[in-house]
Design a protein around this nucleic acid. Structure first.
Lengths: 335, 335
DNA sequence: CCTAAAAAATGAAACGTTTAATCAAAATGG
DNA sequence: CCATTTTGATTAAACGTTTCATTTTTTAGG
């Protein structure tokens, strides 16, 4: 019960000190559990503070200490279903350590990305968790010595949390081969981001080795697959698809169905990301799972450690992926 | 070009004043475009500030003025696909006015909701955009005089942005009737939130009037529909479903398909929310669209207005919904 | 007991702003 | 040309903390 004793406004440290009959300094020491203050006084101050419902003014604290206990999360696109789970876990992990999170979404624009970073830095965030749009280090001149954790992308200057996409790409390809497919198409996302390239390149490599690569489509963006490819598939150029992102895979499924092809009876598909949609689709999308929840948590852990020890050597964490089988893989249709 | 003249640390107002050969006060006045400062000096100060790459320390400004130009966004669950688009637009609209947004996700727990609000208030946010878990005013004792904008839910103390769910519920029911259905089931979400109740109640009302209500299932939560209902539908108790949320509708479709029923050939379905998944499904989910983007924008506009004029009379904005036809509505199967 | 050391408590400066209260200089009016 | 107003600029206080340097009180040692 935080009752409000003094009229109206929030009690300040001075109020607490006054009410406890002690100096402001002592009150501060007592509340922060530092300095040398007697056990009795400490308890008393704490008690009074609780009674008054005292909450430190974080702006003041921030100004004095230079630490805001806030961090920024910069994401390319919140509406991409890959990100909300990440954001959620970042926010929660941060709260565990009494940090709050400014979330910004840059809509895939480098300009917006810089503006967002600027704003956050000016706000004095203690650190940034940054999922860059592509591999360009667009914030190089802004971040200064600020702790930054980079997600998924590459960056020579910051701590990194990455994903072992190579193994994911391989898993997908191998699974399709094991199912008996010998004409497999690969569809990949934006080629200007390493992690996206790697996904499909590792698939391609495996497929080549088995002489099972039908074709490779680059830079598939949104979720309607190019009609050309759909037609190619319809003509039987491929009996299975290795797709670099679930969103694209779902689009591909749609396109195929609109052309009368069944999934997985006529063509098998494996996606990448394990976005929640996939589980909801019918049949469920088989895909490569990225442990995005753990990544979120580990991101704030790593960032907070870096904030605490700026000099520690650079860290690079790589998360494993797993294949999750649902309903979009089957043997190729009998010819 | 924000080059860094003084060694290392960010330049402060004092640095600017010094470099411009003017008092700190004048520098402040000049930069904020207030007070009486000569045209020449003003220009000069601005120029110097730009040259030094000066950025005001927002913590300091906040402490002095009591305004942080930050707001908090409290959502029940970021991974519910309804919310990311909302969050995105809130963040963008806020940035337009140089506000930053603390985003928190309360996982449907009232405890977490209170904790989050506490933290944000302590941080000194200028206002809160709050999508409550249900209709309980769980923050009543915390918010004090703080401007709060409540989304979707009801609340006697705050500005409101709501949705005309009644008309949505009616639209859905009418559409199914128009398609020829006469045995229609209604599935609704949590009954402890008014807006959820209203969605289905308005459907029910219309269906009753046409004597077309087959049954009404309350409190359907996650996305697998109760086997009981699925069986009931399978037995032909209903040829169409009016569902209170897309997420539930998609689950329903899955369950039906697993029992061998086709959508929409055997049973038609209309959802509610128009979450992005719906468009990706095959066939696309017919649903009621909520203009969530506009709502996000209007939420920050209304909140910022309230922050500027705390005394203005309470506002309540109601957004219209629209029916979006995709592929899940068809005439009932011939008996 | 007295002194020295340790512990507890305090005063005041500092953080980077804004802004009220002054003051000086320039402009205005009679 | 003096008195008055306006304009331009400055000084200093204030916001709520933390923390250094200092003082006061207590404890311990001989």
């Amino acid at each position: 019960m935080t009752k409000d004793e003094s009229g109206g406004k929030r009690p300040t440290l001075k109020d607490v000190a006054l009410a406890a009959g002690v100096s402001v300094a002592t009150a501060s020491y007592a509340l922060n559990d530092v300095g040398s203050v007697g056990g009795d006084t400490r308890r008393h101050v704490l008690e009074v503070a609780a009674r008054l419902g005292y909450r430190p003014n974080l702006s003041a604290k921030a100004m004095r200490t230079g630490k805001t206990s806030a961090i920024g999360l910069i994401l390319p696109d919140l509406t991409n279903p890959f990100f909300p789970a990440l954001a959620q876990n970042v926010v929660h992990a941060a709260r565990e350590s009494a940090y709050s999170v400014f979330v910004t979404d840059t809509q895939g624009s480098h300009e917006a990305e810089r503006a967002a970073a600027q704003a956050l830095i000016q706000r004095g965030v203690d650190g940034l968790i940054w999922f860059p749009i592509n591999d360009e280090d667009t914030l190089a001149d802004l971040t200064g010595g600020l702790p930054v954790l980079v997600l998924d992308r590459d960056n020579p200057r910051h701590d990194l949390i990455q994903i072992d996409v190579d193994s994911g790409g391989r898993m997908a390809a191998e699974r399709l081969i094991r199912a008996g497919h010998r004409r497999i198409g690969v569809i990949s996302g934006p080629t200007d981001v390493r992690s996206s390239r790697q996904r499909s390149e590792s698939s391609v490599e495996v497929l080549r080795r088995h002489d099972a690569l039908a074709w490779h489509l680059h830079n598939a963006y949104s979720f309607d697959l190019e009609p050309a490819v759909a037609a190619a598939v319809a003509e039987g150029s491929a009996t299975a698809l290795c797709v670099g992102a679930d969103l694209i895979a779902l689009g591909a499924i749609n396109t195929l169905r609109q052309r009368g092809l069944r999934v997985p009876e006529d063509v098998s598909i494996i996606g990448f990301d394990n976005i929640p949609y996939g589980a909801l689709a019918f049949p469920g999308l088989s895909t490569i799972n990225i442990p995005v929840e753990e990544m979120g948590i580990e991101a704030v852990n790593t960032l907070l450690r870096r904030i605490a020890k700026p000099a520690e050597s650079r860290r690079r964490l790589v998360f494993d992926v797993t294949y999750v089988e649902r309903g979009t893989v089957a043997p190729p249709p009998a010819p």
